[in-house]
């Protein structure tokens, strides 16, 4: 028989995933490493929501650029630690974030909202309201 604890402990353990370095989709004019953030993108009838992991990015370090159907998300990071520290072990690197997406729906630019919490960007892109099919009632005389 399986003890009960084993069943309750069956939740997933996180695995290390190396940060993905951006494979030059645009030439970089500044030095430094660039990473592509991991994202979740989901859609409801009214809006598209994008969540991006961007640790170390302050809320004023985020740039969102939407032109036509092209969405660009970028984040500038604050340095981790001060300059007089000596590194002993380095398992990850830091650098700014950049990723771009193409959107299929029309977005209402004026209602886009973005927030940053615990290093996660939440970007809500409301869709432009389409002409809904309207049912026309035929009145009986």
């Amino acid at each position: 028989m399986v003890p009960e604890e084993v069943i309750t402990m069956a939740d997933k353990e996180l695995q290390v995933r190396e940060k993905r370095e951006l494979q030059a989709d645009a030439e970089q004019t500044r030095s430094g490493l660039v990473f592509t953030p991991a994202v979740d993108i989901f859609e409801s009838e009214e809006e598209i929501t994008l969540l991006a992991d961007m640790p170390g990015v302050p809320s004023d370090g985020v740039t969102i650029d939407l032109q036509n159907d092209e969405l660009k998300v970028a984040g500038e990071v604050e340095p981790q630690g001060s300059e007089n520290e000596t590194s002993l072990v380095r398992e990850y690197e830091t650098g700014r974030f950049h990723r771009h997406f193409s959107l299929s729906d029309r977005i209402d630019q004026s209602r886009i909202s973005a927030s940053m919490k615990d290093g996660v960007l939440r970007l809500v892109l409301p869709k432009v309201e389409k002409a809904k099919p309207r049912k026309i009632e035929v009145k009986a005389e």
């Binding site: 290390v16 007089n84 072990v89 398992e91």
Partner: peptide
């Protein structure tokens, strides 16, 4: 092992 760590000292 998650998470990846950086260790430094002053």
């Amino acid at each position: 092992v998650f998470p990846a760590l950086n260790l430094s000292e002053d």
